[in-house]
């Protein structure tokens, strides 16, 4: 997309998502509205309060956003090259963390952590400032030291994965 969302569009969109979320929570909560104990409030009351409150509050926010006529509030800003590179960097980090979390048990602590650290350090360092030796040293030494500390010294269990 060439333009970023305006503040107004972002507020409207987020309010709509929250209204939908609140309504879904409220509807699902209704299925817990069964009296199992005499005088009890039922299991539905607290989630119903939460769902209802989120939907109502988000609706208030939505109305506020729709009624706000401030030109700056509705102004769209063009996406710069920096914005695009930041989005890629952020999305890359999300994906990397997702892979790290899901491979934690199967691949094992040491290898998954070493790979995660290497890629994340590379993503979070500007191109001209990358120091490969330091990156490799941190990526390799950190998981080994943590493994020794937690498993050998503190007697914790960490996933060994393919090394086990």
């Amino acid at each position: 997309m060439k333009f970023k969302f305006s503040k107004k569009e972002a507020d409207i969109l987020s309010s709509l998502v929250l209204i939908a979320f609140g309504v879904v929570v409220y509807i699902i909560s209704m299925s817990y509205n069964i009296v199992r104990m005499e005088n009890d409030l039922t299991d539905a009351w607290l989630p119903k309060v939460c769902g209802g409150a989120i939907a109502i509050l988000a609706a208030v926010r939505l109305v506020g956003a729709l009624l706000n006529k401030d030109a700056n509030y509705a102004k769209r800003v063009e996406r710069s090259a920096e914005d695009i590179s930041d989005t890629l960097r952020g999305a890359g980090s999300v994906l990397l963390l997702l892979l790290y979390v899901f491979s934690y048990r199967s691949v094992g602590f040491i290898i998954s952590t070493a790979v995660y650290l290497f890629v994340q350090l590379t993503i979070y360092t500007e191109k001209g400032k990358r120091h490969w030796l330091l990156t490799v040293a941190i990526s390799v030494l950190m998981p080994i030291l943590l493994y020794l500390l937690f498993v050998k010294a503190l007697n914790y269990t960490l996933p060994t994965g393919i090394l086990g």
């Binding site: 699902i28 817990y32 199992r36 009890d40 939460c50 769902g51 926010r61």
Partner: peptide, 27 residues
Amino acid sequence: ILGLISAFFGIFLSCVGTAPITSTVRF
């Protein structure tokens, strides 16, 4: 408004799982 939305969202998260008193599994 935003603070309360956040608070109710957190309270909702605490409702996930076994409910007190009846042990009904919610969400």
